[in-house]
Structures are given as structure tokens and as C-alpha cells.
């Protein structure tokens, strides 16, 4: 089991760091995606109004 071995703290540390890095990357990628999509929609709406 993860919590019972001699090196459990090191194993836990590697799982924590790796999953945090992965989650952070996913979160930043999703945030950038939503932000850019919204920004593009706003600009396209503005240009349509101008035309």
C-alpha cells in the first residue's frame, strides 16, 4: 500500500507534485481556451456591428 512502505513519504511526494503540475496545466489550458474564445466572439461581434 502507498502509505505503509519505507519510502511512502517519497512516493506520496512524487504523486502530489506530479498531479499538481498536471492539474495546473489543465486548469491554465482551459482558462486560456475560454478567455480566447470569448475575446474572439466579442471582436467578431464588434466587427459585424461596424460592417
Amino acid at each position: 500500500m502507498l502509505e505503509s512502505g519505507k519510502y511512502a513519504d517519497l512516493v506520496l511526494l512524487s504523486y502530489t507534485v506530479s498531479l499538481l503540475l498536471l492539474f495546473a496545466l489543465v486548469a491554465v489550458s482551459l482558462w486560456q481556451s475560454v478567455r480566447n474564445r470569448k475575446k474572439l466572439e466579442d471582436i467578431e461581434k464588434r466587427i459585424k456591428r461596424h460592417d
Binding site: 489550458s29 486560456q32 481556451s33 480566447n36 474564445r37 471582436i43 467578431e44 466587427i47
Partner: peptide, 29 residues
């Protein structure tokens, strides 16, 4: 995970490039 993130981020980059070109067009107008 790599494939999913590359697809998502490529879509974002395509949007970002389109934003940049539309902003240039607006400035030109």
C-alpha cells in the same frame, strides 16, 4: 492527456492568431 491538451491548446492558439489578425484589421480601419 498529451493529445487532449495539444488539441485544446492548438484550438486556443488558432483563436489567438485570429484575434491578432482581427485586431490588426480594426487598427487599419
Amino acid at each position: 492527456v498529451f493529445i487532449a491538451l495539444v488539441l485544446l491548446r492548438t484550438r486556443t492558439e488558432i483563436h489567438a492568431r485570429r484575434i491578432r489578425s482581427l485586431q490588426l484589421r480594426e487598427r487599419g480601419d
